[in-house]
Simulated scan of single mutants.
Amino acid sequence: MKTHVAGNNSSLTADQLGIQALAREFARKEVLPLANELDPIGGKIPRELIKKMGEIGFFAIMTPESDGGLGLGALEYILVTEELSRAWMSVGSIIRSSVLPAGLSAAKREALLPRALLGEYIGSFALSEPDTGSDAASITCRAVRDGDGWVINGAKMWCTNADMADYIVLFARTTPPPSSRKRHLGISVFFVEKTAGEFPAGVHATPVRKIGYHGWDTFELVFEDFRVPADALLGVEGEGFYTGMSFLELARVHTAARAVGLATGALEDALEFAQQRLQFGHPIAEFQGLRFKLAKMAAQIEASRQLTYSVARQIDAGQACGPQASAAKYMASEMAERVTSEGLQIHGGSGYTTDFAAQRYWRDARLTKIFEGTSEIQLKIISDSLLGKVGATR
């Protein structure tokens, strides 16, 4: 049985502790065995597991009770994320895939929400492009009005689970930017419905050859004269950039929780291995150098965990916390790379094999420093909050 490391949960309510315990038990019994089986061979997350998650309510955490959800907050959302990511970060990620985008008509949302809350209707996100990552305002994928619809041409990158998704949230430029200082204007968002397991005509998909984040495929998508109806447009035409940026506080604290969870999984595995592995007639856990290594890992995880919880509480309180969310994401992702690397080191040569999960945590941790804004972007956001944006007063 996997060693369990308990964080400082004294600030959590009884209900929050119950949700955390439920997610931890589910991750231990349902997710971890699948991760150990499927990650080494690049297998996909089974739909049966997603169904079980939906039945428990993992896709309905932040949806109001009046809409059929659990009516909980960002803190409960990241508690579940953290526990699932202890077992497999990909599963800790998929609960976000059922969040319907803003801008859907009331009738459309009412029709789709029951399925989304059960994990039966999930989406993929298409913002980045082969030549556009952190600078989202520079996207070149175009959507042009044509009769009663839109025609889309261009390429998108890093579209995870696009094949199995029921819809794609697609960002495309509909008008040229008015000036170099307002490049973010003229970008619109489209709701592209599709059949799960297929790509529609006019969409060409190439899987990305990832080193980690297994359990689902990630794609480069090329749109060639791809037509969508007029009502596929979400929100106000030309203001899609604001839509894309509006969810980033929660997205970044979600990534911080994923990083904390997988780092905790790496620590738990390292603790168990250190107590079982014998060298020079003793468990290596008796050697002070290694004991201090484990202690440092635990301390770094707990510091990132408490920062992440604090930012989640700010979100629940309705407070603007962009720099704080960036700080949580930065600290947790940088921590996760260090901690998982140490966990692999403690496993020695065994850690460099797929027979142990140490390498899975290490590979997935490296991604947390890149997606949802690189570590460098987080530092820019934090420094801008301290010093103002460069050139803002020129």
Rank of each mutant, 00 (worst) to 15 (best):
L75N: 05
I152Y: 03
G215L: 06
N8L: 09
G215Q: 07
M297Q: 09
N161L: 05
G119F: 11
S188K: 07
S105H: 11
I187F: 04
S180M: 10
G373T: 07
V151K: 14
F273Y: 11
V80R: 12
P130D: 03
P114E: 09
S98E: 01
V260N: 02
K156I: 03
A312N: 10
T140E: 10
A201F: 05
T255M: 12
K29D: 03
T63D: 02
T160S: 15
I382F: 05
Y309P: 00
L75K: 14
S179V: 06
F199Y: 14
N36C: 12
S105I: 09
Y213Q: 15
E198G: 11
A14D: 14
A312L: 13
A106W: 11
E272I: 01
K2C: 01
E30F: 07
V5D: 03
E198H: 09
H4N: 14
A332N: 04
K194H: 05
I284M: 04
E268H: 13
L248W: 05
K108A: 15
T3M: 12
G388V: 05
K210Y: 05
L84V: 05
S375V: 06
M89A: 14
F191K: 09
G73P: 00
A21M: 10
P64H: 12
D225C: 05
I381G: 01
W216F: 15
K156V: 01
C159Q: 05
V253C: 04
A165H: 09
S188T: 03
F125S: 04
G240H: 03
M1P: 01
G373K: 12
A60Q: 08
W216G: 06
M53Q: 09
S350L: 10
P40Y: 10
P207N: 10
L49P: 01
L294M: 14
D269M: 11
G54F: 13
I381M: 03
E110G: 13
R394K: 13
C159L: 07
V80P: 02
G18S: 15
V339Q: 02
E239V: 10
M89E: 09
T374Q: 06
G103H: 11
K369F: 00
A325F: 05
A87T: 07
N153Q: 09
R142P: 00
M331W: 06
F58T: 04
A74D: 01
T255E: 07
R181G: 01
D364S: 05
K194P: 00
I152V: 13
F371A: 08
Q16D: 07
T393I: 09
E76Y: 07
P101S: 11
D146W: 10
C159P: 01
R96P: 00
W88Q: 10
P200E: 04
Q314V: 13
D146L: 08
G238C: 06
F371V: 05
A320E: 08
V169G: 01
A205P: 04
Q306R: 15
R277A: 00
D131Y: 12
A274K: 06
D269H: 14
A87K: 03
G322L: 15
E55P: 00
K29L: 07
Y242S: 15
Y213V: 12
M335H: 03
E372D: 13
I211C: 11
G73V: 06
L367Y: 11
D131C: 10
T3Q: 14
G92N: 09
E302Q: 14
L233C: 02
T63H: 04
T354S: 10
H282R: 15
I211F: 13
G123M: 09
L117K: 06
